[in-house]
Design a protein around this nucleic acid. Structure first.
Lengths: 217, 217
DNA sequence: CCAATAAACAGGGAAAATCCCCTTTCCATA
DNA sequence: TATGGAAAGGGGATTTTCCCTGTTTATTGG
């Protein structure tokens, strides 16, 4: 751990006025310093690939043209998994939050930001590696309880991989090979999921997975 | 046709500053008058369902929290098909434009709006019932030519219905019944599409349909 | 520690659905 | 009349789906 000063922050936000005031706010915190702006995901990629000094934290707006927050978060988690992403967004609906969390985002803030909250969030991101507001924790909890149709959405790791693979043109046999399991085991997963999720066939599974953001197109 | 004055316009737009300047601009046109604002789709529903004097035209922002432009357009086309919707959006990518057009939007404007263009658009909406910028016409044309993978995306009506039904939990037999065709004909559609679209199975079709926005979740 | 229980994993077998290649019929229309 | 598309069909291979059984591997309570 290094001294608690001069942690670097990047901002990706479409609304330039808002972004600028954010920057001022952040720079007023002694430990943090904004090192760059980007107005969308593409712009961010360029900036990151150009410079060699990377920010430790990135504030990421979800609503952006060109390359939105979801795509950007995905790219960051793949290419720079060590950068902690704090998502900013107007929407506080469960789906959106889950979508971002699944893409490896480390924190989530609604956009009407109080200085103290932002400060707390940045602090916790640094110290604990994540920040969860009550709203987010609530969502996490909620996602583990039955959905509107009374289905349990708590999947085991293997089930989740199966679902993802089933949402492709792969055959069940091929899925079995990929997961290094017997085709019969795969069939077990399938049958169990169909029953639990009350779906009739593989198309149903694909649709379910998409609706619940278990997979992305 | 009634005299060319005082056509009513509704605005649905998140960015309140922008929306307000839009309103001023529109009210400066002699023939048009803004009768209400809504800050998102839900808000719009309430306003529409409350009042009985409906706008003839609605300017609809695509990027909105809570209930976005796509959903809103869908709702409007189902519940108020006679209201002409002019979509406003930052993004000018083909997919987005097509998505809105498929939802019955009558015109599409990029958001950096020149007063004359807006005026033209409103005029044409009233006179011809639609407004197409060069960009949109271009997109329409483009959508009928082969896609990135060299596939032809020009579907006949029956094929389109088949695709949509195939993206559900229905069986091919059931689809045949619904479309009042022999199962063998359906099988013909299936086989032909698989070949043309270079896909392996029904899941592939679902994914294709979603990517091309032929269906919505 | 051991038995009871649960779970993940694997198999057999059969019916249904999907997938594929090919032919025939019908009909519009150039 | 010829051409081409849409609809319908035959027949067979493959895959999916379903139900039931059995084995192995934790896990937990006594």
């Amino acid at each position: 751990m290094r001294p608690d000063t001069n942690h670097t922050v990047g901002i990706v936000d479409d609304h330039s006025l808002f972004a600028r005031s954010l920057e001022k706010l952040i720079n007023s915190f002694p430990q943090f310093k904004v090192i760059f702006h980007a107005k969308n995901g593409l712009h961010l990629q360029e900036k990151i690939e150009a410079s060699d000094v990377l920010p430790e934290i990135i504030l990421l707006d979800i609503n952006m043209p060109v390359m939105d927050g979801f795509e950007t978060a995905e790219w960051l988690s793949l290419n720079h998994p060590d950068i902690k992403v704090l998502a900013l967004s107007m929407e506080d609906d469960e789906q959106t939050i889950l979508k971002m969390l699944r893409r490896g985002v480390k924190g989530y803030l609604l956009k009407d930001i109080h200085p103290e909250i932002l400060n707390t969030a940045l602090q916790e991101l640094n110290e604990k590696g994540y920040y969860h507001s009550e709203k987010v924790s609530e969502t996490l909890l909620h996602s583990l309880t039955p959905d509107e149709e009374g289905r349990i959405l708590d999947f085991k790791e293997n089930e989740l991989t199966f679902i993802k693979l089933a949402c492709s043109e792969l055959t069940y046999k091929e899925i079995a090979v990929m997961m290094d399991l017997s085709p019969k085991t795969i069939d077990g997963y399938r049958q169990d999921l169909f029953k639990r999720l009350k779906i009739k066939n593989r198309v149903g599974l694909v649709i379910f997975a998409l609706k619940k953001n278990l997979i992305h197109l």
